[in-house]
Simulated assay, not measured.
Amino acid sequence: MTTPPEEPGFRVTLKDVYVEVQGIKSILDERLRKIEQQVAAQWVVVGIVIVALGGITVKAFTG
């Protein structure tokens, strides 16, 4: 019995795909966490600015 000639290319198993997806998922999770922290910090700054502007406005109209 003869073996068929080697075909060009490679085989991809379900396990290979799963491992790659898990690697990409961990990278995306880290990046998403950093973005969430940056957005949270920006909202803190926006909140401080709003409170300061409100205080200035109240002082201008009452004082």
Results as ranks from 00 to 15, higher is better:
30 E>T: 07
25 K>V: 00
37 Q>C: 04
25 K>D: 01
32 L>W: 02
4 P>F: 07
8 P>Y: 06
21 V>E: 03
29 D>E: 15
57 T>F: 13
38 Q>W: 06
53 L>I: 13
29 D>M: 08
36 E>R: 14
35 I>S: 07
21 V>S: 07
38 Q>A: 15
42 Q>M: 15
25 K>G: 01
31 R>N: 05
31 R>E: 05
35 I>P: 00
23 G>P: 00
42 Q>P: 00
21 V>R: 12
50 I>Q: 09
50 I>L: 15
51 V>S: 12
26 S>A: 13
16 D>P: 01
10 F>T: 02
1 M>Y: 08
30 E>P: 00
33 R>P: 00
10 F>E: 04
62 T>F: 10
5 P>K: 07
29 D>Y: 04
58 V>K: 09
60 A>S: 15
28 L>H: 06
61 F>D: 03
38 Q>H: 09
62 T>Y: 08
60 A>L: 13
4 P>R: 10
20 E>V: 03
59 K>T: 04
19 V>T: 14
56 I>M: 11
43 W>Y: 11
55 G>L: 15
18 Y>E: 13
54 G>I: 05
11 R>Q: 10
29 D>I: 10
47 G>W: 04
19 V>L: 06
17 V>M: 07
25 K>R: 13
25 K>C: 01
2 T>P: 06
45 V>T: 13
46 V>W: 06
46 V>C: 08
21 V>Y: 07
22 Q>E: 14
46 V>P: 00
56 I>L: 14
4 P>K: 10
33 R>V: 07
23 G>T: 06
13 T>E: 03
9 G>E: 02
31 R>I: 07
59 K>R: 14
17 V>H: 03
39 V>T: 11
10 F>P: 01
49 V>T: 12
5 P>W: 01
36 E>G: 10
19 V>K: 13
57 T>Q: 05
24 I>Y: 03
22 Q>G: 00
24 I>K: 10
5 P>I: 03
33 R>E: 11
39 V>M: 13
19 V>A: 09
13 T>F: 05
62 T>C: 02
50 I>H: 01
54 G>F: 09
56 I>D: 01
30 E>W: 03
60 A>W: 13
6 E>T: 05
5 P>M: 03
45 V>C: 05
24 I>N: 07
14 L>A: 15
7 E>Q: 14
63 G>S: 08
62 T>W: 02
41 A>I: 03
58 V>M: 09
58 V>L: 11
57 T>E: 08
45 V>M: 07
20 E>A: 15
47 G>C: 05
46 V>E: 09
35 I>M: 11
62 T>N: 12
58 V>T: 11
44 V>L: 12
27 I>D: 04
24 I>W: 05
53 L>A: 10
30 E>Q: 07
13 T>C: 04
30 E>N: 06
15 K>Q: 14
1 M>I: 04
49 V>G: 09
9 G>K: 06
47 G>P: 01
23 G>D: 12
28 L>V: 11
42 Q>Y: 10
51 V>K: 12
6 E>C: 01
12 V>C: 04
48 I>G: 04
26 S>E: 05
40 A>T: 11
47 G>L: 07
13 T>H: 03
46 V>R: 14
52 A>I: 14
43 W>G: 01
31 R>S: 07
11 R>K: 13
8 P>A: 08
60 A>C: 02
47 G>S: 08
57 T>Y: 11
14 L>T: 11
49 V>R: 03
35 I>R: 12
46 V>N: 09
5 P>T: 02
55 G>C: 08
41 A>M: 08
55 G>Q: 05
